[in-house]
Nucleic acid binder design. Structure first.
Lengths: 337, 337
DNA sequence: GAAAGCTGTCGAAGCGCTTCGACAGCCTAT
DNA sequence: ATAGGCTGTCGAAGCGCTTCGACAGCTTTC
């Protein structure tokens, strides 16, 4: 293992000089810098992370807490995680992966041990049990998702309320009067996940304003669950012609079932999905959708956190504006009966 | 921040004693241990990760390199990552997330900086460019996937060759003579990903042995790509009645297309998928499938690596035996024409 | 009952880095 | 000329922990 001291000796300077070349915190003459950089290259030197963390009280690590649950659309999580990791690297940080397994204690452990300089929390619930700990330890942190009380917190999320409103507006414009919402799995609502509830709120509020009838049904993913849910919906509201789907693993089953029942999309019914672009584009009918900007959320979260760690910027709630892309699953107003 | 020294003072012992209580590397009397443990609890002490790493040259961190590519079924990756993270925790390790972005240099950086004690590599190619570095730096490492040359390496993977053979056997038993393989995206084969090639090898070898005709076609995910691929297959081999699908995002499109063409599953054609259980169960036809045991792979990888770090166990290739579960997508032999 | 061996504890020496104060040498402003 | 300011470099003091050798006080052994 090559150490700073060895580099210093090789370059004929003191250790502190090498350190300053590395950090740029003091000015170093061009000739010295070059000499040092050459030695670093020749010896293949890499600063020791532990020593650095100890001396500087900065680990250059960001902790990312991802949920364990599998009832939430996983690819989105994955996309966020990857965006976080790559963005973090461009700022000189590495990412530590924490799963929900450990629960809120992970916050205490990470804060206490100096393992990470800050953390990013995903899958935040409205009344998340990690929040008190976060405030108590005052860990620099950024949430992806919105809890009920955001005072003193930095959050990044898609504006799901506006997303819900947007979907309803779109369907209203196409002349739909009876709209059904295929929601996330019941468990998601039971634990009061912010995004699900806010979407619903946006949907309902706008539906009321526009005079639409809205029926919301949570739905586990998969074909069988969707079949049951759809049957119930059509039983209760036979005139339903508009669908908003927020559970990606229900998208394809819904399309298949509608087809099977002879309801043509978009001629008879319209479907609007809230899902990643890829899902919308790859579906058997290219879906009109509001994209979940996973990458952007991950990137934003890191940038907010890095700003915080650098002492720039404070608490802030960033809500990304939803964008609805019209594709083949929603058409003009259906024929009036 | 509470330090070891403060705990020691509070408990009325020396710092080294506290350290030994924590590590258990020397015997400590019960009374002293209790006193120390009480102080730790009362003060809310957490050992500083950096100091620990510096002093012991062990970071208690495992690096997990996940690929950036999105042409590989992502949920599997996510599942593996989560399994790795949770298993690692049970062994006292945290997980650092590295993306492919940085490329092979990440290996050098991690090895050089002592950031992690070892690493787990996912999405290994047959002739992976990270392998020379791994050998050169002799980082303790475990691969999830199998490269061409495994000498000196520890690998964990599903036995994809056996998986391919199993699928063919199943279709052969059902009387199918003409079998089509819907493979991963072309890019996956172009970069010589081990699992894709080995599956194909298993499929081909066994098909030859059993006298089946096999047609392999790579396929991007999604409905449109699948439509094109299927049309070509049926054009070339109209008598095709058996399908093996290895690209999960092609599964549902394939089923929809077959339905649309009036080919009933499993009456007219059989479909066998190589995919996670969840996909098989949630599909519009419950799929006969060979499961990809993501969790088990992640867990195994960690356990191998931990064993290595503890000086136990050496290089080994663990191939998990595939298991085929018969569901509703493959039936008895089709009627002979 | 002296030698030898345990057990439990302590002190001190680092691990490799950052950072602060010091200062030599030089340049500018009076 | 001289005081004052810069620039570039160095030495040394830690950061909080692990670990090694030492040793005091016991117990065992013949």
């Amino acid at each position: 293992m090559v150490t700073l001291a060895e580099v210093a000796q090789h370059a004929g300077v003191s250790a502190s000089t090498v350190s300053y070349v590395l950090s740029g915190k003091r000015s170093i003459s061009a000739t010295t810098r070059q000499r040092v950089e050459r030695s670093i290259r020749e010896l293949g030197y890499h600063p020791n992370a532990g020593a650095r963390a100890l001396a500087s009280s900065r680990s250059n690590i960001i902790a990312l807490m991802i949920p364990l649950r599998t009832d939430i659309y996983v690819p989105v999580m994955m996309e966020i995680a990857i965006a976080v990791a790559t963005t973090a690297r461009t700022h000189g940080y590495d990412v530590l992966l924490l799963t929900g397994e450990e629960g809120p204690d992970a916050v205490r452990r990470v804060a206490g041990s100096g393992l990470a300089d800050g953390m990013i929390l995903m899958d935040v619930e409205l009344d998340d049990e990690r929040l008190p700990l976060l405030r108590e330890t005052d860990q620099p942190a950024v949430l992806i998702g919105l809890p009920a009380d955001t005072t003193g917190l930095t959050c990044v999320d898609l504006d799901f309320r506006a997303t819900g409103a947007l979907c309803v507006e779109h369907l209203a414009e196409r002349g739909h009067r009876d709209v059904a919402v295929i929601g996330e799995a019941p468990a998601v609502y039971e634990r009061h996940t912010g995004f699900a509830e806010r979407t619903l709120d946006g949907l309902r509020t706008r539906a009321r304003e526009l005079g639409l009838r809205l029926l919301h049904r949570p739905c586990e993913g998969g074909y069988d669950a969707m079949a049951v849910t759809l049957a119930r919906i059509l039983d209760e509201r036979p005139g339903t012609t508009g669908f908003v789907v927020q559970n990606e693993s229900a998208v394809e089953p819904l399309l298949a079932l509608l087809r099977q029942q002879g309801r043509a999309v978009p001629e008879d019914v319209s479907v609007v999905a809230i899902c990643p672009e890829q899902v919308a584009v790859q579906a058997s009918v290219r879906l009109t959708s509001v994209a979940i900007p996973a990458q952007e959320m991950g990137r934003h979260a890191v940038e907010q956190l890095v700003a915080k760690l650098d002492g720039r910027g404070g608490d802030e709630v960033v809500l990304l504006a939803p964008e609805l892309t019209v594709r083949a699953s929603s058409g003009p107003a259906p024929l009036q009966p």
